[in-house]
Nucleic acid binder design. Structure first.
Lengths: 144, 144
DNA sequence: ATTGATGCAAATGATTTGCACCGTG
DNA sequence: CACGGTGCAAATCATTTGCATCAAT
């Protein structure tokens, strides 16, 4: 939290209320919001804020490594304050996006390395399916 | 090849020269082309063809399950005539896109299932790194 | 005071859409 | 000859950019 202020200053970046607010949203949610979502969430507190500011801020945060950009297959990007490269789970029913522990990643990479000559440097892994809640709902429907 | 004609007809779709050409490009390449790439590749033979036609055809092929759409992180989609859901390798240096055998997928899914309650239905897996050729080039540069 | 940040509006670029005309079945 | 397909141009939509103004350092 405080370290972020430091990081911004270290990079010669100014600390503005808009930036703090956007960072704050990202740090206190697990829902992997889009630029639009962040914008709407903040429009109550910052009625004058521009969507462009949200985009510029996200771009900046991405560059200094404070957020990662996700493409889960929708028309727009989502953002994650957890920058460790970890696989994501996407519910095909309710569109929620969950994290998969990064420990899993190690095992996955081990497996992939067995089968390729590529020198791997990164990955984007999205697994689709029904989240526990939606799984229940579907079961209930089928029981009727 | 001939089976594709059958599939189109079965779905009440017309067989046009443009469609055949687009399907042909997709079947005879391993480079995972974008709509734009396909369009350019065919503009010699079909100078009057519209980019919109390429997009409409790809949409149609996607719907009947003859191609899959890839999002490797560029601004545009790429298309793959191999519709079996398999992981992809993307070279961060030359942007080529390779397939990873779908057998690998089984092991990856096994691993993921250990760690989630999601009922998995699909996945989009992109591994980034240096392809064998680019890996060599980099080594040579470093040796000088 | 500087210099980077903001907000607005206009620009971009991939993809989609509407529609009149054309070609397949 | 009926109806889906094509080509063109205009429309979308997320994201980016230019620029004058504003505020953090």
């Amino acid at each position: 939290m405080n370290d972020i202020l430091t990081i911004l200053k270290q990079n010669g970046l100014k600390v503005t209320p808009q930036r703090l607010a956007i960072i704050n949203v990202l740090q206190n949610t697990k829902e992997h919001p889009s630029a639009e979502t962040i914008y709407k969430k903040l429009s109550a507190d910052f009625p004058a804020m521009s969507l462009a500011t949200v985009y510029k801020t996200l771009e900046m945060l991405k560059n200094i490594g404070l957020v990662q950009e996700l493409n889960v297959g929708e028309g727009s990007f989502r953002y994650d304050a957890n920058v460790k490269s970890h696989p994501h789970l996407i519910c095909v029913s309710c569109n929620r996006v969950d994290d998969l522990d990064e420990d899993v990643l190690k095992d996955l990479l081990k497996e992939v390395n067995k089968h390729t000559d590529y020198l791997l440097t990164g990955q984007k892994l999205y697994f689709y399916g029904y989240c526990p809640e939606c799984k229940k709902k579907i079961k209930q429907q089928n029981n009727e």
